[in-house]
Design a protein around this nucleic acid. Sequence first.
DNA 1: GATGGTATGATTGTATACAATTATACGTGA
DNA 2: TCACGTATAATTGTATACAATCATACCATC
Lengths: 232, 232
Amino acid sequence: MANYDVKNEVSDKYSLRGRVFQKLREDILSGKYKDHEELKEVAIGEELGVSRTPVREAFRQLELEGLIQIVPNRGAYVTGITAKDVKDIYMIRSLLEGLCAKLATEKISKEQLEEMEENIYLADFHAAKGHLDQMAELDNRFHDILYEACDSKMLEHTLKDYHQYVLRVRQKTLATNTRGRASNDEHRQIMEAIKAKDAEQAQQLANRHMLNAYDNMVQNGLYEIYGEEARQ
Amino acid sequence: MANYDVKNEVSDKYSLRGRVFQKLREDILSGKYKDHEELKEVAIGEELGVSRTPVREAFRQLELEGLIQIVPNRGAYVTGITAKDVKDIYMIRSLLEGLCAKLATEKISKEQLEEMEENIYLADFHAAKGHLDQMAELDNRFHDILYEACDSKMLEHTLKDYHQYVLRVRQKTLATNTRGRASNDEHRQIMEAIKAKDAEQAQQLANRHMLNAYDNMVQNGLYEIYGEEARQ
DNA sequence: GATGGTATGATTGTATACAATTATACGTGA
DNA sequence: TCACGTATAATTGTATACAATCATACCATC
């Protein structure tokens, strides 16, 4: 069996296809391409200096991500992310992160638990210093550890997808320093429930953690970035 | 705004790319291609009588579905579905179908509710007659209605993905006539809870419906189809 | 015999050419 | 003026050619 890189993020960064995919995803999520806008293969290709082939392949991936819709022989149309989408994602994630934490309580390895503790410790440090970028990075990593620790390929895959999806929003959320601290405290509680093998508690805490993150986001009015018409 | 077909299933059936995608997905899920098997573009292309281009595009989609893993400049390797995956999917679906039913209680349209009632009525008829194919078809449709009725693009998308994923297993499950009837009775209960606007009840029933479906599957030993090594 | 390097073949990555389909513009006839 | 059909252009769908990368086999060297 080939010992290929299991940690390989979906679609490599260094092929043209991968770069086109990442670029387009970023541009759609950031709002550069508006809802229902048509994406033309040659135009995108010329803009990025590549031929149609990698662009087309990226389109096929974006379609499965739900970011564009491809109509045969017609074209590709942007299906942007709306405020309603964000709300729904947090609702879904709330349930699934809870499940994930519950499963992780049984399945987590010693190494993963240690990395979690280290993560939280470090995050305390950066919170005190006001290092927002590092905070965001550590927050990402905390959740990734949790996803990996649940020992479910399916759940991990789904959660990582959603995580990616709302990443842009979430990073702005953490930029409010108080939420950064509160978030890390919640991480600590989750970690300690897992460490104590209290699956029920871990589930509830992870569940709440998501709902809190969403509430905070709403309070700070971060929906603005998606424009008025995205509002439900 | 272009009035493109919103019901368009992911990847059209009639383009070469779409057909290759469907064929490969079917072959992977049915076990024709074993775990870790390498898929070669030219070989697949020759087998299906198409060039590499549609095959490559199908590969990119399969990767995002998690059915294969593409290693840059090396190749595509099958990531089969294991018994553990099926178990995890039902666990996840149990939560999400519950959420979906809860949301649908508020959002369902009169037309959707009527189609549901008709669906259940028809399923009773076919159950009595022992028409297994129609039962399976109606079961699929019941869940699709529910997914559409929750009025959440994100949730609908995720649930449809998972539904597709386990479809092959599920159809065999319904083939046991008693489960077909029981399943339809559960559908009726869910529908009536929605009709009575009892969201909490709808959520619980949908939740249980999934767990029951899984239990039944395990009892009937349907994991066999994935071979011994798939068992956890 | 083991090790390492090079040549060769196989496979994927990308670009481009051509075919099929769809959208648009224009002209004809009522 | 409007409806309709046809021609043309634009765009996507597919096939193929070429480039880059990787795996393998073979041979030289120790």
